[in-house]
Design a protein around this nucleic acid. Structure first.
Lengths: 149, 149
DNA sequence: GCGATATCGTTAGCAAAAGTAATGAGTCAT
DNA sequence: ATGACTCATTACTTTTGCTAACGATATCGC
């Protein structure tokens, strides 16, 4: 066993937290580095993904959803809009706000890019046993929830 | 159910990869933002943690372990050394190399800080059911492996 | 042995991405 | 209708990582 410590250390909540924190940080770096082309930053990809999943949203809602400050979201949206992947529309009820929405090209990119962008991770996943994948499937939902709480 | 899509999307490896990628990225940001004081960056903490777990290592080994380029590790180590948490020693067999080791203060910080630094995540974990924690415990080991493959 | 080549850590310079503070437009409650 | 608040943006700074180049040491081929 390569890391006997892992199982030992995850006995307690704090130990599990420690291991999770490090693993998540490292995996995030790894995924960033693994990005095949620089076409889309990690954050940009996440926003497209969120819009595809949740439909049109305001910049503020996107910022909160992605756990980023509003100015960062402004930048991400600007970059996506410049590439025609997203477009802004006035919020019908509140002129301060806007609604951000995927363009057709944005939808297309999400679909085609999803496979390409996740190629590395997908490949790693195919190397896992079905049980491990089942674990990750359940864990994904939990991590999802943790990241938003 | 807040995100019915999650379970649907994770049916395929690619879908699971997509969800994992986004969740991991967001959780990493979240953890970074949650850092209680700015005392230790995420990377610095990870290095201390690795040294505590694996003993003395060379900078190169640390860099590879943390999936970071050597110059980045140089900087992290320099910051840690400046604070007296770590110290370098010559490698006995190879004068090119060094060995990095926790100082007593480093060990102390790892111990006391571990709890404080993971407080947020630990708190979130206590809110989970035992089954969910068991899932995360198994998942942590898998993520650990993924991040290093 | 010794010269070419490779490896290790570092330095220097740079780029990406996110954060904070300040600003302008719009809304809302009194 | 005005004062306080909210949303998005702009300007600036910080963080964090990268690549390229370099100096010191080790190793390999001869």
């Amino acid at each position: 066993m390569k890391h006997p410590d892992v199982t030992r250390q995850t006995r307690t909540d704090a130990g599990l937290a420690a291991v999770l924190r490090v693993a998540v940080g490292r995996l995030a770096r790894r995924l960033r580095a693994q990005r095949p082309d620089a076409s889309l930053s990690l954050g940009q990809g996440a926003v497209l993904f969120a819009l595809a999943r949740l439909g049109k949203m305001t910049p503020g809602a996107l910022a909160e959803h992605e756990k980023v400050q509003p100015p960062s979201m402004t930048r991400i949206i600007a970059a996506l809009e410049e590439r025609g992947l997203v477009h802004r529309m006035k919020h019908p009820d509140d002129k301060r706000q806007q609604l951000v929405e995927l363009t057709d090209e944005g939808h297309r990119l999400v679909r085609t890019d999803r496979r390409r962008r996740e190629a590395w991770l997908t490949q790693r996943l195919t190397e896992l046993t079905p049980e491990e994948k089942a674990t990750l499937r359940k864990a994904a939902e939990i991590l999802e929830r943790l990241s938003q709480s």
